[in-house]
Design a protein around this nucleic acid. Structure first.
Lengths: 115, 115
DNA sequence: CGGTTATGTAACTGAGCAGTTATAGAGTGC
DNA sequence: GCACTCTATAACTGCTCAGTTACATAACCG
């Protein structure tokens, strides 16, 4: 099985796998920004940032508007909702995980008590 | 900034970026499985699946136990909780996103009215 | 128009990844 | 100990990706 939603998730998760791109999203959460503004905090050339923006745009995580000579990038969080929807199926496991951790800690404590 | 949590998220999101690995996680959600069992549904060699498991294990998404000659893989969802925690910071945007769409449509309509 | 600023594109490099086949290792059962 | 099963590792290939520098566009400003 190889669905369209799969392709979407591929792109979203792959986009999120890079720390520079996550930092760009964090910056955009504070408001729109030009390429130059986004490039400044990173020890990285402008073309590199342009490429990251292209990846983010491809994943639907960023939209852009032309204003005079500058292109402003905007955060588009909707694909994150899709990723969240995928992960939601596993939420019961990570709650269960804490239960297991609790159980393990309890077992450990009991063992401690015995010794 | 390049934190340890970043490295963790790198590994988790990168692991999730591959549809085969997401399918493996889906299978493991139904219960532990051997490498051979995991390989069967995919048109893929056993070493390929072993590599995917190694990636998943590296991201902390899978743990393994040796039982006789077979190694059973178990889903470990805790890293998904970390990824979820990261995404949580953006949840307000994906609700807001629908509002913004409404606003954009309204602006477009106004512009149409003017011309 | 000419210069300047902001950004995208092209061509290249090095690294890493997903897959393959072939082989090695480790445990079980007899 | 031997054959068998399950899994990991090695070596290789083709592709993608993150980054670079150099150059091309495009829109403003005087």
């Amino acid at each position: 099985m190889h669905t369209v939603e799969d392709d979407r998730l591929d792109a979203v998760f792959a986009a999120l796998a890079d720390p520079t791109r996550r930092a760009i999203l964090a910056r955009l959460a504070e408001g729109e920004a030009s390429v130059a503004e986004l490039a400044r905090p990173f020890a990285m050339s402008q073309p590199a940032v342009s490429k990251h923006l292209k990846v983010l745009e491809g994943a639907g995580l960023v939209s852009r508007t032309q204003v005079a000579t500058t292109r402003l990038s905007h955060l588009e969080a909707q694909p994150l909702a899709e990723a969240d929807a995928w992960m939601r199926r596993y939420k019961r496991f990570w709650n269960e995980g804490f239960d297991k951790l609790d159980a393990a800690l309890a077992a450990y404590r009991d063992q401690e008590d015995e010794t």
